[in-house]
Amino acid sequence: MIGLATQVERGSVVIAIGGVAVRVNTADADFLAMLEERYAGFVTAETGADARAEFDFDVELVPPAFADPDADLSVAYRSGRWFMQRGDFRAELDPASRRGCIRQSANPYSIDAVLRITHTLVLAKRGGFLLHSASAIRNGKAFLFAGVSGAGKTTISRLAPPDATLLTDEISYVRKIHDSANGESYVAFGTPFTGELAKLGENTSAPVAALYLLAQGPENRIDPVTTSDAGRELLANMLFFAEDSEMVHSAFQAACDFVSRVPVYRLTFVPDARVWELIG
């Protein structure tokens, strides 16, 4: 029967962000190499089909010829599966088997979006979230700097002193940790999701000490924020894609829990390094 079937050799890479490992399988060696380079530092040492991962995606590469490349993102839960779709990709994830598939062209942006969506879905169930914020570790504690585009996430990252470890300049990864000794707390992890700085965060983590809501002004200062304002602003900066009611409620409760436990301040700063004298 030789010649009747051709077995396609598939390669795999396991990308672990925030302690959640996602295996990506592809038959395209160039795409695999691109993933290994793009997520360097977050690719686990274990590779191949035997590497342990929480989620498994098969990537089918297609020519970049979708009907509408600028179509909006939609994430919907139907018949026990998550369906993710944007102008440049279509993906599905079965949360029960933890297997999914992605149909996209050979580019790094589509799979990056699928990874972000997958992590928001995972985190929402576990009391955590992805946040539009820079984050860094200083003196063993993590600090988050949240704000919309232009608020200063890249600037505060660029101004970070040498003793600060940058976790991300764009998308922070926050997990709720249950500890029998300390109860519930929050830990920030490094991410490969970059902003203008185009520099991957360090793949490390630390307990979250504070969230700063960024504002630019004539002086460096820290002001208190009411819990309700903190909750509103945290929700406004959270990445959340699903329109599923249960997931929305989970995200809402995660935000409320976070601001009830973690100090939140408004950080007004001028763009110079002295602002870091107020941090840590």
């Binding site: 009411t226 819990t227 309700s228 903190a230 909750g231 509103r232 929700l235 959340f240 329109e243 599923d244 009611s245 249960e246 929305v248 409620h249 809402f252 409760q253 409320c256 601001v259 009830s260």
Partner: peptide
């Protein structure tokens, strides 16, 4: 039943599951 609510400080925040809309 589609609403999640939480008292934060002195304000009641409620969020609708449909449309992800937040109300104070």
């Amino acid at each position: 039943p589609r609403i999640a609510a939480r008292m934060l400080g002195q304000e009641m925040l409620v969020m609708s599951g449909q449309g992800s809309t937040l109300f104070t």
